[in-house]
Amino acid sequence: MTGSAPDISLRHQRREQLTMLALALPALLVILLLIVLPVGWLAWQSIWHNGFTFENYRRIFSEDIYWRSFALTFEISLAVTLLALLLGYPIAYAASIAPRGWNIVILALVVLPFWTSVLVRAYAWLALLQRTGVINQLLRQLGLIDEPLALVHNTFGTVVATLHILLPFMVLPLYATMQKIPRDLLQAGASLGAGPVLTFWRVFLPLSLPGVLAGCTLVFVLALGFYITPELLGGGRTVMVSMLVSRNVELYDQWGAASAVGVVLLAAVAAIFFAVSRFIPLDRVLGQK
């Protein structure tokens, strides 16, 4: 009597676990095939070349070009993130307080560029920013400059175009968070004697911080891996990590070296996610609560 009842429940529990596993199996297989295996293959390649070797990693950590490229990639990503926050916060704020209908217009304007290919947008910026581009032409005709400004084929052009492409990833999480801030908290702030500035500073801003963190993480991580935009607008002088990967493969056929760069970048991203997840739960970054 004493032994049989737990036995039955234990067996039942085990069978239930097996059923659950069977249900999850297809999804697990897809993840295994499409994510775990390729990434594992990547990691393997970086340390196996006719035997174990750390040559690829040694090179990354000793050669100047890698260091400079990693540093530049992080600088650009950080700049893009901060600028996206500076531009995105007012946009999201406006959308969150706009009367019904207007918020949809604002968000539509933010999301609209999504429907154009990244390539098209990069070339569009090229057309705007180049020496004979629209902006330089206009400034010269207005007599504001004599020589065309170097707006593209450098870090500036890369940042501008990347910022444009990634702005929605800042605005949308910000808007989602701001929209959830109860309006009666703002009314309460006012009723307790706080003017609009104090209410914003002490109530609205702190409550929008999860959105700020989510947007910044998304934009920063996406910017780290940007390839087409810096390739087209960096003019070969702005070498980001993604371009190192591509050069290693296309120019030198060095799959091992390319893989090692990828692994280091992946590790850096994982480290950032880990650091952020200590402040806010990751599921909120991914849009669920």
Binding site: D184, A190, G195, P206
Partner: peptide, 20 residues
């Protein structure tokens, strides 16, 4: 007069306490 200049106490239905 805007709310913050009226100098009145308001207790809201859902309390409207600042959660942070």
């Amino acid at each position: 007069l805007p709310p913050h200049k009226r100098d009145i106490g308001v207790v809201f239905q859902n309390y409207a306490l600042f959660p942070h």
